[in-house]
Amino acid sequence: MAAHAGGESLLRTVRPRRGEQAIVLTLKACGAISILTTVGIVAMLFAEAAPFFRQIDPRTFFLGTTWQPFGSDPNNFGVLPLINGTMLVTLVAMVVAVPLGLGAAMYLSDYASQRVRAVLKPTLEVLAGIPTIVLGLFALTFVTPVLRAVFGTDVQIFNAASAGIVMGIMIIPTIASVAEDSMTAVPSGLRESAYGLGSTRRQVVLKVVFPAALSGIVAAVLLGFGRAIGETMIVAIAAGNLPTITANPFSQIQTMTAYIVQAVGGETPRGTLSYQSIFAVGALLFLLTFTLNVAAQRFVRRFREVY
């Protein structure tokens, strides 16, 4: 301060850096858009679904077994058939994706040579990058005829099984990559000490690596589950549009996502009960996937903390 009073300061800015401050503020605003997006999603789902629940008793919505939203009978707004459809397809998908995805993760982390990995990993990523509408057409025009050839005409043209199988294949890369990350994160010392005790590779993978990577594996499965629930085009094309309560994977069903596409495809006018029902279903869908994602992130963080 003394020097400052005596003469010109050597260390102070001549003028404040307003431009720099403005730029940082702009950058922060860009970051805030992501938060605005979430706020927007929650707000619009709430705002559009609220009038729906003013007319339809939530008990009817959550417990009702009939979904015929294009009429006006308030008893026909029971969402269980859509949930049933979603869960049936998802179940098929998980039956396919969990063993295959985890198997692939084990292979890539502990068996594959560097060169094989370098080829297989990007190829699996390509699978994840195929637009789902392509997969939907594949389910409808390839997998369904195969199923019908094997299981006969009990298999309906539109059915949960073929959509679920293709969806499962689509989810393999998601599960494999997250699970593999957690398996490669298992310290090599753990593996080496197990090999040192005379364990075979299979024993090391199943009894050492797998348990040690468990939280990452759980995260992988949860993420895959979330993707399956939210997947739209495969089911909209191949699984049909018939809201039913059934456990038969060969029958036509309708998922929550397929309903949303079907209903807006008819350009349902705004303000009608049908329009609002789209958002009620959307809110439910968002809630489910959001919960799964948050849970998955918890588990991911846990394996990151351990290693």
Partner: peptide, 10 residues
């Protein structure tokens, strides 16, 4: 002679 860590030093 000027405090390097004084408030206002850039």
């Amino acid at each position: 002679g000027e405090d390097l860590y004084a408030r206002g030093v850039d």
